[in-house]
Design a protein around this nucleic acid. Structure first.
Length: 942
RNA sequence: GCCGAAGUGGUGGAAUUGGUAGACACGCAAGACUUAAAAUCUUGUGAGUAUUAAUGCUCGUGCGGGUUCAAGUCCCGCCUUCGGUACCA
């Protein structure tokens, strides 16, 4: 080991560092002096570091929330002293369900609840010493903010997606095209059922008809859609707000319902959102989730004739190579095909089936995926390749919302079709394997389907003998020649439902003029939320806004009654921070051109398919329309891990109200959560517990060794589990710097971990050790102005280098270790020199800013340490002249030898072989081989 | 089922490009200081084993193989845990 330097024989008493007073003082200083105001322009480069802004809930912040905030704060402070203009703002995602649910229960206006919660959040955030520019705070619920959310909505309404230009364009250009030529030559994103019309058709349409056509093109549009309706919340939810058939917020059941809804044509951007992932620095898992959510699949679309009908049934398939294996067709119960093709004798049983599957809730359908059901429609289709007639069934394993709502079934090579084929054959009294046909060489497909992506096609006419890809190419060429089908790309992504039948959200800035949805004039924005008597739907099921008196325009037209979803305000907030007070635009062009987009975004991975998708969509749209210079919002994304709670349990015999210590518990006893503040190192504070709840006042306890030992388990941190730890309590006990360092020291930022305070003393000790470098036992200042020694400079510069490297790669846990090592080394050197301490304080300031500021001031500086410049480490102090080589024999470390780094290989080899410890292993023989890696290792192969 | 991430001492974790496994810290043990306690400091601390001792040897990064002078790190096959997703044709 290098640092075996004489250890101090005298014991040193730790000088007192008053963190409470000091931290408060500097937090006040930063606020008063606006130390972290973001400045634009000048010579400096910009760095924009952003946290996902929180929804201010009534519970306040717990110790899990700041993990990411601390990381981003370190980056913000670090980049600032590295000479960047740093933008590091904070705000609040303030519209949302909890405040509204509370309003329904209590009648208190959600604005009041929200305001209170925000005040609490800000207080907590300030206690942690974060370097936010609070002058740029935004709140999505304020009219000054949502005015622009409404404005963006209007821009979307006024736009369509032109596929030739591959971007969003003004709807007025589309209207001009319709007037000139109709829509036959238009290639734009639109509804599936958009009719084709000529210029004269267009001219002949009524105003209402024209409006309806345009809605099929607009990027935000009104149409009848099957939606996720949540009766308990009284609103519609988007796909990403539904988890396993229950609402994500509140966990209420969700059902399918057809309703008139505002939607966002996000599908127009599917391809660009997919491609854009290549150019952003995001964690691969998140990109993968978005890719899956967008769900691009290449395949083919083809038409099947229906016996006795003119209409052709169009299906989408990714396996056109298996076309000869098609033995039946299936349509979704909700699809229009059902009524169209069902024969009279099958009408009753089919409509009964359709009713039954509608009644089946979404959740039931998902719960038993393996159970298939369906009925014969009586109709037959003709396979265009084989001319065979095949039956058409209605089956609820076919989804109305994907592809065309109809499928060609290949039971031999698709698992779902296989399951249904056996079910329906048995039901019809046929042989179980009646519908199963093998068209790919491989194992027998009777018992189990075989995807066979590598096998050869068989029994398939002109496709036989080919491999999958070749067969697909040939089949598509054949279809195109015959005009029955073509290659087609399909996406799983659905247009996003945008209406919410709730109160606490942005009003949709639209009114209805003779049934035609019309935008409010821009100068009338913001359309402010009206006062209502109750926050509930009306008696006839209209949204709460219908309760507002005179919810009409000045001309008396009815205003839209639904509000926007939670993700509206958060889809563009990053741009508002650049120019939060602008009254003429959502962001000023010059400001946006300077800050561009977010350089580092830190937040949870749970937003992968919601916020992170929608904000990319809006950014691309605003870019297309020329309002932004960037088309991705977040250049680099880091997902911080979740801090879980460690719940504590007590065990009660329900009959006797006696609590048994963990080691004494028996079967049949209740396991009850106990507040973690009453437990220390698994030992229960019995007196505290008795006072916690009145029903425990007279409880008796069976102890182990005089103590009551609690059980523990890692769970999500939540109020109901009594395992929430408030950062304020930690700060009160140890200070904000300790909390910051400790949360970082816990492990890599990305990693999830349960909260425990087992190691916090080590970090607390470090803070005091750092202080005591400058102070003697009597807490007197003992700075030395002498020149620093070589050894001291080495410690300093190695630290500076490592801290810089670790901070750049967000490895904050190892950076904290590095500081600890440095302080230990300086302690051994008894170093108290300004030349060492001054640079060190600057390096420490992003991590423990309060301590750093205090010492910086005591060193005589008048300006904040945040205005200092990060010291440059010097090569000469970092490189070693000698290296202690590990000498391995057959790859195992056996010995160590010190050699100069410029010693030639041959010389090292010679000396190593001469060494006694190596001779021992050679046993008189000469080595087979020798590997010398300069500056690293020597390996002798015997 | 599919996709993704991860498994290292009693604990949190480190090892950045294949090159000394266990940095740093907690905990634990012994000692110093103290009337005492707290605080602080010093020393030790992966497991096993041999020696009076310094020291040495064997094993060791979820399991089983492989590549390599050298594997926590790369390859193949499994197991476990945690996330995401789910009839997407």
């Amino acid at each position: 080991m290098l640092n075996k330097i004489a250890s101090p024989s005298k014991t040193i008493k730790m000088a007192e560092y008053n963190f409470r007073e000091t931290e408060q003082k500097w937090q006040q200083y930063w606020e008063e002096n606006k130390s972290f105001r973001a400045d634009e322009g000048g010579e400096k480069e910009k760095f924009y570091v952003l946290d996902m802004f929180p929804y201010p809930s009534g519970a306040g912040l717990h110790v899990g929330h700041p993990l990411g905030y601390i990381g981003s704060d370190i980056m913000a402070r670090y980049k600032r002293i590295k000479g960047y203009n740093v933008l590091h703002p904070m705000g609040f995602d303030a519209f949302g369900l909890p405040a509204e649910q509370y309003a329904i229960q209590t009648g208190q206006h959600p604005a009041i609840t929200t305001e209170e919660n925000i005040t609490r959040y800000k207080e907590q955030l300030k206690n942690m010493g974060f370097a936010y520019d609070w002058d740029r705070e935004v709140r999505t619920c304020e009219p000054d903010y949502y005015r622009w959310t409404q404005w963006i909505f209007q821009q979307l309404f006024e736009s369509y997606y032109d596929k030739k230009a591959d971007k969003a364009m003004l709807i007025s250009e589309l209207v001009a095209a319709f007037e000139a030529d109709g829509n036959a030559k238009i290639d734009a994103a639109c509804d599936e059922d958009t009719p084709t019309f000529t210029a004269s058709d267009w001219a002949g349409f009524t105003e209402k008809e024209q409006s309806d056509i345009l809605l099929k093109y607009r990027l935000t549009f009104l149409n009848e859609a099957v939606v996720n309706w949540c009766p308990a919340l009284g609103t519609v939810l988007s796909n990403d707000e539904v988890k396993d058939g229950y609402s994500e917020r509140g966990g209420h059941p969700v059902e399918r319902k057809k309703m008139m809804q505002w939607s966002m044509r996000i599908t127009a951007y599917a391809e660009r959102m997919l491609n854009g992932l290549e150019n952003i620095d995001w964690p691969e898992p998140i990109k993968e989730i978005q890719r899956n959510w967008i769900g691009k699949s290449r395949g083919a679309e083809l038409d099947f004739d229906i016996v006795g009908h003119d209409a052709k049934m169009r299906v989408f398939t990714t396996r056109i190579d298996t076309i000869y294996g098609v033995t039946y067709m299936a349509v979704a119960p909700e699809s229009d095909w059902v009524d169209m093709i069902t024969t009279p004798d099958q009408k009753e049983v089919v409509s009964q089936y359709v009713e039954q599957s509608k009644a089946r809730s979404e959740r039931d359908r998902m719960a038993d995926v393996k159970t298939v059901s369906g009925e014969f429609t009586g109709a037959y289709a003709i396979n265009p390749f084989t001319e065979e007639q095949i039956p058409i069934f209605v089956a609820d394993y076919v989804l109305a919302g994907y592809g065309t709502g109809a499928v060609m079934a290949v039971p031999g090579h698709d698992d779902r079709d296989h399951r249904f084929a056996r079910y329906i054959a048995l039901k019809e009294g046929k042989d179980e394997f009646h519908y199963i046909k093998q068209v790919i060489e491989g194992p027998d497909v009777k018992e189990e389907s075989f995807p066979g992506r590598d096998g050869l096609i068989i029994n398939s006419g002109f496709l036989s003998g080919m491999k999958m890809q070749e067969a697909m190419d040939k089949a598509i060429a054949y279809m195109e020649e015959k005009g029955i089908g073509q290659a087609k790309i399909n996406y799983r992504l659905r247009d996003a439902i945008f209406s919410r039948q709730r109160y606490w959200g942005e009003p949709v800035p639209v009114f209805f003029k003779d049934g035609i949805p019309t935008l409010l004039p821009t100068q009338e924005l913001p359309l402010e939320l009206p006062e209502v008597d109750k926050y509930l739907p009306t008696e006839d099921g209209e949204p709460p806004l219908a309760r507002a008196s005179n919810w009409k325009t000045s001309e008396g037209y009815e205003l839209e009654k639904s509000t926007m979803p939670g993700w509206a305000g958060s889809s563009w907030y990053l741009f508002r921070y650049m120019d939060p007070k602008n009254e003429t635009a959502f962001v000023g062009t010059d400001k946006q051109a300077y800050w561009k987009n977010v350089d580092l975004y830190i937040g949870g991975s749970e937003h992968a398919t919601g916020h992170l998708l929608y904000s990319r969509f809006w950014t691309k749209f605003l870019f297309d329309r020329g309002f932004l210079k960037v088309d991705e919002p977040f250049q680099k994304l880091v997902n911080q891990g979740m801090i879980q709670g460690t719940s504590a349990f007590v065990y009660r015999d329900p009959k006797t109200n006696t609590f048994y210590s963990k080691g004494l518990k028996k079967a049949g006893m209740q396991q009850l959560h106990v507040d973690v503040s009453l437990v220390r190192n698994d030992v229960l504070d019995i007196e505290g517990f008795k006072n916690w709840r009145s029903e425990y006042k007279d409880a008796s306890f069976e102890l182990e060794n005089g103590q009551y030992i609690c059980g523990s388990e890692v769970e999500k941190m939540s109020k109901s589990k009594y395992n929430v730890v408030n950062p304020d309590d930690i700060i009160d006990q140890y200070g904000a710097d300790t909390l910051r360092l400790y949360e970082m020291f816990l492990g890599p930022l990305e990693q999830s971990k349960p909260w425990n305070t087992n190691g916090i003393d080590g970090v607390f000790k470090f803070i005091r050790k750092f202080w005591s470098i400058f102070h003697n036992d009597a807490n007197e200042w003992i700075l030395q102005e002498d020149q620093a020694s070589e050894a001291e400079l080495k410690v300093l510069h190695k630290t500076l280098k490592k801290i810089e490297e670790d901070t750049e790669r967000l490895s904050f846990n190892t950076a904290v270790s590095t500081f600890m090592i440095c302080v230990n080394d300086l302690g051994k050197l008894k170093s108290h020199k300004r030349a060492i301490m001054e640079p060190l304080i600057i390096a420490l300031s992003p991590y423990a800013p309060h301590l750093a500021e205090e010492l910086w001031r005591k060193l005589g500086h008048q300006a904040s340490v945040s205005q200092a410049i990060y010291p440059q480490w010097e090569e000469k102090y970092v490189v070693e002249a000698v290296h202690t080589y590990p000498i391995s024999i057959n790859g195992k470390m056996r010995h160590k030898m010190e050699f100069s780094l410029d010693m030639p290989k041959e010389e090292i080899e010679k000396q190593v072989l001469e060494a006694e410890q190596v001779q021992k292993w050679l046993d008189g023989k000469s080595p087979k081989k020798m590997i010398v890696v300069p500056g690293k290792i020597v390996n002798v192969v015997v």
